[in-house]
């Protein structure tokens, strides 16, 4: 059964009966959901509930994990991403990912952003404008425009994370996955990233895993609550946080969990 969010105008990601095992251990159980286009969808739940594992199914990062077995179907833009004709490398161009720890490459700010486009064969003369546009979209152009050649690691943590977002944007994905993108950042940097994410949904579909419930409440349009590998509840964020339908959701959101 697909939970919550029905009658969505446009579905970007459609998940049907997804099951995932790490060896013998089942980490995801019968997940079905439809993630609407141009929205922010937050996935919340206690540690080990499977939310990050689920996120990593969406760009097939779990392929890198040994003994990981997947059943079920995930379609992004109506294309089965686990289908036989799918090029994983190509999929990851369309489904970008930003990680928990800001992790710019040990190169200059410019090269970090230009890294993806360069490898994907962007014209050398277009690189300047691609980089500028990505940095602008990630709201970090003002801070970096005069020092594009300096090492990315000289930036502050929050700036590094926005640079990583710019690096992802430069590849021009249509969906962006965020895996706890602010858990290593201070509150001010966090607020800036949150603003940025809300801003980005104009052009991208965003799925964010966060262990910070308040963050999910603040920035998302839809929220999914995971518990022990199951999607317990999925629906509009305001509904989940004001009137959840499941007792375990209520317990988690009100901090009475456990």
């Amino acid at each position: 059964m697909t939970k919550g969010v029905q009658n969505v105008s446009q579905v970007q990601i459609k998940v049907d009966n997804l099951n995932l095992w790490y060896g013998e251990k089942q980490a995801l159980k019968n997940i079905s959901m439809q993630i609407p286009k141009n929205s922010v969808t937050a996935l919340i739940g206690p540690s080990g509930c499977g939310k990050s594992t689920f996120l990593r199914c969406l760009n097939r990062m779990n392929d890198l994990v040994k003994n990981c077995r997947i059943e079920g179907k995930i379609s992004i833009e109506e294309k089965d991403i686990y289908g036989p004709d799918v090029d994983v490398v190509d999929l990851r161009k369309k489904v970008g990912m930003v990680f928990q720890k800001p992790n710019p490459f040990p190169m200059s700010i410019f090269d970090n952003v230009a890294y993806g486009p360069r490898i994907h064969g962007a014209d050398r003369k277009d690189l300047d404008s691609i980089v500028e546009q990505a940095l602008r979209s990630a709201a970090i152009w003002e801070e970096t425009s005069d020092r594009l050649k300096s090492p990315a690691l000289s930036l502050s943590g929050g700036q590094q994370q926005r640079l990583c977002i710019a690096r992802t944007l430069a590849v021009k994905p249509r969906t962006i996955l965020f895996d706890e993108p602010t858990s290593a950042l201070d509150p001010i940097s966090t607020a800036r990233i949150e603003d940025l994410i809300m801003d980005l949904k104009k052009d991208y579909t965003i799925v964010i895993v966060t262990h910070n419930m308040q963050q999910a409440a603040r920035i998302s349009d839809y929220t999914g609550f995971f518990l022990m590998g199951k999607l317990i509840e999925f629906g509009q964020t305001r509904q989940i946080f004001q009137n959840p339908q499941e007792q375990s959701t209520e317990d988690y959101i009100t901090g009475r969990f456990g």
Binding site: M61, V89, K93, F99, N103, G116, I119
Partner: peptide, 11 residues
């Protein structure tokens, strides 16, 4: 993280 983020860029 370097490997993961590079792979995640479709590299």
């Amino acid at each position: 993280e370097y490997r993961e983020s590079s792979l995640a860029l479709g590299v």
